[in-house]
Design a protein around this nucleic acid. Structure first.
Length: 463
RNA sequence: UCCCCUGUAGCUCAGUCGGUAGAGCAGCGGACUGUUAAUCCGCGUGUCGUUGGUUCAAGUCCAACCGGGGGAGCCA
């Protein structure tokens, strides 16, 4: 008697097989005809398998008639064509073993829709719902697709450090990593003496693997990282997490246009894989979460992204006739409302904005010949906003040092970074992609806290 | 961090002018020839977020705090 998944048992090819299924009851319906319908799910697919449990089973009255949502069971029986509508197959049980009960009066999840806010309070139970099962499967699919894409393109997967001693990566506030006893820290002239800390200096959780990835790109060509990233910003929005997963490719001998080409090809591949490999889950999102997700992804896969320079974007916004809360002016960063107008209303598709003013972008972005702009690029998508941020990196040592001076950074802190430009420097580029924002875009989920298993946000780390 | 909204039964919510809290769903019991969010009948449920204040009387008014949501900033 083969142990198979619910997903396999739902296929018509399984008809006639004697099988063992293991999973959790979603619901039970009794028939006065003397048997019960059990809906069984094991996480392998969105749909359940319908199990027919006849009253002739030894434990029918004592156990089966008391099964409720979340009870765990082993079912043995034969896969048969379903006698009812709605499914191809069902399992006629010859044995039902109950492993764990779930008191229906106290079990929080009910056979109805719960709000996502309430489910966040039950993060230990929410993977048992249709929506969070689907999100977990799509997230897995996207992760696999990301690795497949880069591996097939000849990229090396590099593991960059989680702990960094550089407090000046410039991407935002950082979490301190320390073994100092906060109750009695070692002091030196009234200040905490970090030379006595674990690393002999202040250390933090990484906000980006980029600078480390550049080291490997400048030796091995094309590399990527895929790992957790930490930002200690007090951000309270539907698009920000204190701990999130980021993918950062970094490529030697790539100019900005190569970078854009890669980003576009990459996103399309991930979107296509989600549609091809998670059909049932994507249909669920389309039916229950956002009825535009499938058509939107389909349209993106078959069309090209709009590429607009920052300067042209300012022009479009200025001539739009639209009243914005924040004024549009060359030299200031675009506001969320500006980005939304461009991607959701003006172009109605993903937009790659590039060549931003040098004054609003980090020191490592390559300065253009006009001396006023740098080769930065942001990929914006409707509803989610910025999904990718990247640039061509400044490979000229003298310009890099000028830029660090401009932004009041100490060259000594970046000695190893600048040495990459001193010895065999190359033009190179890369970008950062927020995994959760991609999942949000694909699934239509509105809050980023619902597309990561255990969200970390200010004041929230319960699970 | 700022602006706005919000907190009442396990869940979703109603609660009028300040007068001592009630619907649906879930659950339980029963009915029902194979059901699909089954349907029908019956039954229960409360630290009204917390603390303080006003008042004869506070779910209701006021203040502070805590939690949740939306928007903004920071970004991915």
């Amino acid at each position: 008697m083969d142990k198979i998944s619910v997903a396999a048992a739902r296929q018509a090819e399984a008809i006639g097989r004697q099988v063992t299924l293991q999973g959790w009851i979603r619901t039970r319906r009794d028939s006065k005809g003397g048997f019960s319908f059990l809906e069984l799910n094991d996480g392998s697919s969105q749909g359940n398998i319908q199990v027919i449990a006849d009253a002739s089973l030894a434990n029918y009255e004592s156990e089966i008639k008391h099964l409720s949502a979340a009870c765990s069971v082993t079912v043995r029986g034969e896969v048969k064509p379903s006698g009812g509508k709605g499914q191809a197959t069902e399992v006629l049980a010859s044995e039902v073993i109950v492993h764990g009960w779930a008191d229906a009066e106290n079990y929080p999840l009910q056979k109805k829709q719960h709000s996502f806010e309430k489910l966040r309070e039950w993060a230990h139970l929410r993977p048992r719902t249709n929506t969070f099962g689907a999100i977990a499967r799509v997230r897995n699919c996207v992760s696999r697709s990301i690795h497949n894409f880069f591996q097939e393109e000849g990229f090396l997967y590099i593991h960059t450090p989680i702990i960094t001693a550089s407090d000046c990566e410039g991407a935002g506030a950082m979490f301190r990593v320390s073994t100092i006893d906060p109750a009695k820290p070692p002091l030196k002239e009234g200040q905490i003496d970090y030379t006595q800390d674990f690393f002999g200096r202040p250390a933090y959780l990484t906000v980006s693997g980029q600078l480390n990835a550049e080291i490997f790109a400048c030796a091995l060509g094309k590399v990527y990282t895929f790992g957790p990233t930490f930002r200690a910003e007090n951000s309270n929005t539907s698009r920000h997490l204190a701990e999130f997963w980021m993918i950062e490719p970094e490529m030697a001998f790539y100019e900005l246009t190569d970078n854009m080409d890669l980003a576009e090809r990459f996103l399309k591949r991930v979107f296509r894989d989600a549609l091809d490999q998670c059909g049932e889950d994507m249909q669920f999102f389309n039916d229950r979460i956002d009825d535009t997700v499938i058509s939107t992804l389909d349209a993106i896969i078959t069309s090209s992204f709009e590429r607009v320079s920052y300067t042209d974007a300012i022009d479009i916004l200025a001539k739009s006739g639209r009243k914005f809360e924040f004024p549009v002016a060359w030299g200031t960063d675009l506001q969320a409302e500006h980005e939304r107008f461009l991607t959701e209303e003006h172009f109605k598709r993903p937009v790659v904005l590039y060549n931003y003013p040098r004054s609003i972008k980090p020191f490592y972005m390559r300065v253009n010949d006009d001396e006023k702009t740098v080769r930065a690029m942001d990929v914006l998508v409707p509803k989610v906003g910025e999904i990718i941020g990247g640039s061509q990196r400044e490979e000229r040592l003298d310009v890099l040092q000028t830029r660090m001076d401009e932004q009041h950074l100490k060259a000594a802190d970046y000695w190893w970074y600048t040495e990459l430009r001193r010895y065999g420097t190359v033009p190179h580029s890369g970008f950062g992609l927020g995994l959760e924002r991609v999942i949000q875009f694909i699934t239509g989920m509105q809050n980023i806290r619902d597309v990561i298993p255990f969200p970390r946000t200010p004041g929230n780390a319960e699970f």
